Computed example of a mutant assay.
Amino acid sequence: MTGTLIGVGLGPGDPDLMTLKAARAIGAAGVVAYPALPGTDSFARSIAADLIRSDADEIVIEVPMTKAREPAQAAYDVGAGRIAEALAAGRDVAVLCEGDPFFYGSFMYLHARLSDRFPVEVIPGITSVSAATARAALPLVARNEVLTVLPGPLESDALASRIDAAEAVVIMKVGRHLGRIRDVLAARGLVDRALYVERATMETERILPLADAPEAAPYFSLILVSKGSDPWL
C-alpha cells in the first residue's frame, strides 16, 4: 500500500477561507510539502501553519522565480523525488498550494511527475479571482457573458488582441508588468473600467482604480476589467 498524494488548495491567503476538507487533510497529514522561494519563508505554509501537526515531517520545495524554466523544473524534480519516497513508504503527503491546485497552481507540476505511480486526491480552493471580485464588490460576468483570464507576462500585442475579443477580463500575475498592462488598457479606453487588486483577503490588501495603482506591483496582484453591465439593471 502506498500513500496518497493530496493537493490541498489553501485559498487566496486568509486562513478562514480554506475549506473544511482542506483543513482536515492538513491536520491529518503526517507529511506536508510546500513551495518556497529560496531563502524565504513559504507563503503557503504561513496560511496553514496553525493546522500542521507538530510531529509532521515537512518537505520544502525551493522554487526559484526565473524566466528560464529549467531551474524551477529541476526544483520540482527534486521535490517530487522526496515526496515519492514518503508515498512509497505508505505515508500520505499533503501538498499545500495557494489558491487552487490546478489554477496556475504549483501542485500541477508535482502531479505530472507522480500521478502515474501513486493515488491522488485534489482538494479545490478559492481562487484569487473569486476573492478579488468579492473583496472589490464587483460583479464581473452575468448571464451569457464570457470571462477571459489572461496572464500578465503575455506580449503586449497578444494581450491587446485577447482583451479586444473579451467581454470581461481578469489579468493575473501582474507584478513587474503593471505599467505595460496599464498602457495596453489605456490604448483601449479601459483604464476607467479596471480595478487593481493587491493581495486580496490578506492584511496588506489594496483595492484601487487602475489609474491610481502603484508603478510596481507584487506577484500576488491582478486587474479586473468589466466591459459590460448586468443586463438586469
Rank of each mutant, 00 (worst) to 15 (best):
E85S: 13
T40I: 03
G27N: 11
Y34H: 11
L20H: 07
V63Y: 06
R45W: 12
I52R: 05
I47K: 11
A80G: 15
A86P: 00
A89D: 13
I59V: 15
L110Q: 01
L87A: 12
Y109N: 06
A72Y: 03
D92F: 11
R45K: 15
G81R: 13
Y76R: 02
D16M: 00
D41P: 07
G79F: 01
E62K: 11
L96S: 05
K21P: 09
D55S: 14
P35K: 01
K21Q: 12
V78L: 09
P35Y: 06
A22S: 10
L114M: 03
I26Q: 02
P101E: 13
G7C: 10
G105R: 05
A72S: 14
K67F: 13
G99D: 12
D55V: 07
L110I: 11
L5C: 04
F103N: 01
K67N: 05
T40N: 04
D16Y: 00
I59R: 06
H111I: 09
P101W: 12
A88M: 03
F107M: 06
M108W: 08
D16H: 11
G90E: 04
G81Q: 14
E85N: 07
V95D: 01
A75C: 07
S46K: 15
F43I: 15
P71H: 05
F103Q: 04
V8L: 10
L51M: 13
D92M: 14
A49E: 08
S42M: 10
A44S: 15
D55W: 02
Y104A: 03
Y104T: 01
L110K: 01
Y76T: 08
R82P: 01
S46I: 05
G90R: 01
A44C: 05
G7A: 08
G90I: 02
P71Q: 03
V78G: 01
F43V: 15
A72E: 02
G9Y: 08
A28R: 15
G27W: 05
A68F: 01
I26K: 10
R53V: 05
Y76F: 15
V31G: 00
A33S: 10
P35H: 01
S42R: 04
G99H: 14
R113A: 12
D57H: 10
T40R: 15
T19D: 11
A23E: 00
I26R: 04
G30Q: 12
I52S: 06
P15T: 11
F103I: 13
P35D: 01
A56N: 00
R113W: 04
L5V: 05
D41H: 10
P35S: 00
D55E: 11
Y104L: 06
I61K: 14
F43P: 01
Y109P: 03
A25G: 06
F103R: 04
L17N: 03
D14V: 05
L114N: 07
I6D: 09
E85R: 08
E85M: 08
A22V: 06
A88I: 02
I52L: 02
F43K: 08
I61L: 06
D77M: 03
T4G: 03
Y76E: 04
R69V: 07
T66S: 15
R113P: 14
Y104M: 01
L51F: 13
R82I: 09
M65R: 13
K67Q: 09
A80F: 05
G79K: 07
K67A: 11
A84C: 08
A44G: 10
A23F: 00
G7V: 10
A33H: 11
I61P: 03
G39H: 10
A75D: 06
L10G: 02
P64C: 09
A48V: 12
D92R: 00
